[in-house]
Amino acid sequence: MKITYANEKVKKYFQDYNKMQRKIPFEWVRTIKKHMVRLEAAECFGDFLKLGLGKPEQLKGYKQIRYSLHVAPHVRLIVEPNATQDTIMICSEIEVEGVSDYHGSSENWYIP
């Protein structure tokens, strides 16, 4: 699957896990790296969702479709599939939004 990033700052951290480790705990970085490898290996987003790895969950309250992947309690990797509700299962491109402390209506971004 093709992976893009929300902005250059996010891209900088996701292309250098050592830099990411200076900003967030090592255990989180290790989990994020596993998620990224699995996302890259999937043919489409539907294949990734079927595996259920990282407890993917669709987020509500956004204009675009967004999913969160579990990193730690209350910490999520936020991704946005480049798809509509009808094409989510065959989507082959996602955009990484960052790492957030997600509590329903409030967000605290660790990596914006």
Rank of each mutant, 00 (worst) to 15 (best):
K9R: 13
K9C: 02
K9G: 05
V10D: 04
V10N: 05
K11I: 04
K11A: 11
K12R: 14
Y13I: 01
Y13W: 08
Y13G: 02
Y13F: 15
Y13A: 00
F14A: 04
Q15V: 03
D16W: 08
D16Y: 10
Y17N: 07
Y17W: 11
N18T: 12
N18I: 08
N18L: 08
K19C: 06
K19L: 15
K19W: 02
K19S: 12
M20V: 03
M20T: 08
M20C: 06
M20D: 00
Q21M: 14
Q21A: 15
Q21V: 06
Q21L: 08
R22H: 12
R22E: 12
K23T: 13
K23M: 12
K23I: 02
K23G: 09
K23S: 11
K23R: 15
K23F: 04
I24T: 13
F26T: 13
E27M: 12
E27Y: 12
W28E: 11
W28Y: 12
W28K: 10
W28H: 15
W28M: 15
V29T: 04
V29R: 04
V29Q: 09
R30Y: 05
R30Q: 14
R30C: 09
T31N: 05
T31F: 03
T31P: 05
I32F: 01
I32M: 06
I32G: 00
I32L: 14
K33M: 11
K34M: 08
H35S: 03
H35Y: 11
M36C: 07
M36Q: 11
M36S: 00
R38A: 01
R38S: 01
R38G: 00
R38W: 01
R38K: 13
R38P: 00
L39H: 06
L39G: 00
E40L: 08
A41W: 09
A41C: 09
A41T: 10
A41H: 15
A42W: 03
A42M: 03
E43Q: 14
C44G: 03
C44K: 12
C44M: 09
C44H: 15
F45W: 10
F45A: 02
G46N: 09
D47G: 10
D47Y: 14
D47P: 07
